[in-house]
């Protein structure tokens, strides 16, 4: 067992974990933050995307112990109190989700995308989200959602 201490959504969380425990399982199983999803086992779908020290990262590719001392933001910590994040709003306004399974990861990737490029073109949005798979939406409304957030953000 290894001791980890991670600031998750602004709160310091410490636990003894199996050294092989993935960050995504630490979040989901230990902290009950089940908004972060698992969609594959080869680090390709992006459903598990969270922010680690402000950058998007696939939490299925990181051991919890590697995140020791980091600041992690999950979908549950994105809104500012009752105030939805502009991307959450964009996804709602533009129907950027159907089953919602890819959505938390998609939103967290988009947060990173807009941080790097606050007014992306459609092409840049599509390429910027290539690490996140969605099987429901055909991506068009997701692109609209990101544009919506960029316009309002």
């Amino acid at each position: 067992m290894a001791q980890v201490s991670i600031t998750v959504n602004g709160e310091q969380r410490s636990a003894d974990v199996d050294p092989r425990m993935l960050l995504v399982h630490f979040l989901r199983e230990q902290l009950n933050l089940t908004g972060t999803h698992v969609g594959c086992d080869t680090s390709q779908c992006g459903a598990c995307t969270v922010l680690v020290d402000g950058r998007s990262a696939k939490s299925c590719t990181i051991f919890a112990v590697q995140a020791h001392g980091s600041e992690v933001t999950t979908i549950e910590g994105l809104a500012d109190g009752d105030q939805l994040h502009p991307l959450q709003n964009g996804f709602w306004e533009e129907h950027g989700l159907q089953c919602g399974y890819c959505t938390p990861g998609m939103i967290m990737s988009a947060v990173n995308l807009l941080k790097d490029n606050p007014s992306p073109t459609e092409r840049e949005i599509r390429e910027g989200l290539d690490g996140n798979l969605c099987r429901c939406t055909g991506y068009q409304h997701i692109v609209n959602a990101v544009q919506h957030a960029a316009d309002k953000g």
Binding site: R28, T34, G35, L78, Q88, F91, G100, P104
Partner: peptide, 21 residues
């Protein structure tokens, strides 16, 4: 009409099978 399902899903508050304990 924008969807009524979305507020829970965009905040990570939906419950899928693997979320059940």
């Amino acid at each position: 009409v924008k969807r009524r399902e979305d507020p829970r899903l965009i905040q990570g508050l939906g419950t899928y099978v693997d979320d059940i304990k």
